[in-house]
Amino acid sequence: MVSASELPVQERFDWFSDTLSREVVPTALSTARPAEFQAEAAVLDLGGLRTATLGFSPLDSRRTPALIRRGDPGQYQLGLMRCGTASLAQQRNECEVGPGDILIWDTSRPSDVRTASEDGLVRLAMLQLPREAIPLPTDRLAQLLARRIPGHEGVAAVLTTFVNALENHGGQCSREQLRQLGTTAVDLVAACLAQHLAAEDHLPAEVRTRALLQRIHAFIDHNLADPELTPSAIAARHHISVRTLHQLFRQQGEGESVQARIRRRRLERCRADLARPALSAHPVQVIAARWGFSGPSVFSRTFRRMYGVSPSEFRELSVGA
């Protein structure tokens, strides 16, 4: 993350304007209080697409035909609002979004954006997607430009969780892993947009399958504490048969069964809790039950098989380190 706070006050707005035009797209920015302007930015390359994490004082942004002629990456840009509000006008559409909302715009079309924040910076996570990467008809996607997409439901909620994880952990991934994450990002964006167009049938079967798998992974992670989290429950929630669920895991090269993934993710959560000094007074069996294990003996055997030590031994080594 690079911050304007490292620069003299009079240079901060110009620095952010130059950074945005260079790293995102040429844009004309204006702000009511340039002498008080603050901003920070971080970019992550996912191999063919990029994410940008931005924080900035309220400003207005215009992308004019002249600026489009000056530089156009030919992208759809998808924004996830973190803090503050934004109003976007493009393609005779207009919307206002707040924290948790998603919006999309086309860099090849003129646009106007106004942002505001009552307390602190406007914060936005952005995905920069090559137009040809989204396997949906251009005329259909135009219907979603400058339209509010709630980020807390359906595929949009899975996409939001994915973007959050990218921000928090993307810097720890290798170049190849980031490239794979880029493919997942495109699939989730396409599935999210298709859902809001009621056009999932327009997506290639492979994209629909990968997006379904990501929804299943998110569902598993959100329900690890439920001892009734079984392949049957997962299949029913996603309106597929148990047989189809198992085939999905095999065909996508996951290298583990549905039950194995549930067990691994539960063990990872337990391991993280056992290593936290703040939870050192919590009995091991309480932590195991918190993450859906049916009993302490089952948990202890499974933990030792995975990590080579008992839960108690691991906690002693970790907390005492």
Rank of each mutant, 00 (worst) to 15 (best):
L159R: 07
D14N: 12
H246Y: 15
P73G: 14
A66C: 04
M126L: 14
L213R: 04
L127S: 08
P135Y: 00
S5V: 13
S312I: 08
V319W: 00
T31G: 07
R261E: 13
A198E: 13
E256N: 02
A157W: 05
V155T: 15
L213N: 00
R269D: 03
D139A: 12
A236N: 09
L20A: 09
A190N: 03
R243L: 13
L197I: 08
R250P: 01
A278I: 09
I262W: 02
V242C: 05
A211E: 02
V207E: 13
R266E: 14
D45W: 04
R22M: 00
V113E: 15
P204R: 03
E36T: 05
S297F: 03
L103K: 08
C83E: 15
R261Y: 13
A66F: 06
L213M: 11
A32D: 15
G74F: 02
T19M: 13
A142Q: 14
L80C: 01
L78A: 12
A235F: 08
L166W: 05
V113N: 06
R22V: 02
R114P: 09
A233I: 07
I102T: 10
P130S: 05
Q128A: 10
R264P: 05
H222I: 01
E23P: 04
E11I: 03
Q10I: 08
A260P: 00
E36V: 04
G98C: 04
L46Y: 04
E23M: 05
R215F: 00
A272K: 09
E268A: 12
H246W: 04
R147V: 11
E23I: 01
A275T: 02
R315M: 06
Q38P: 10
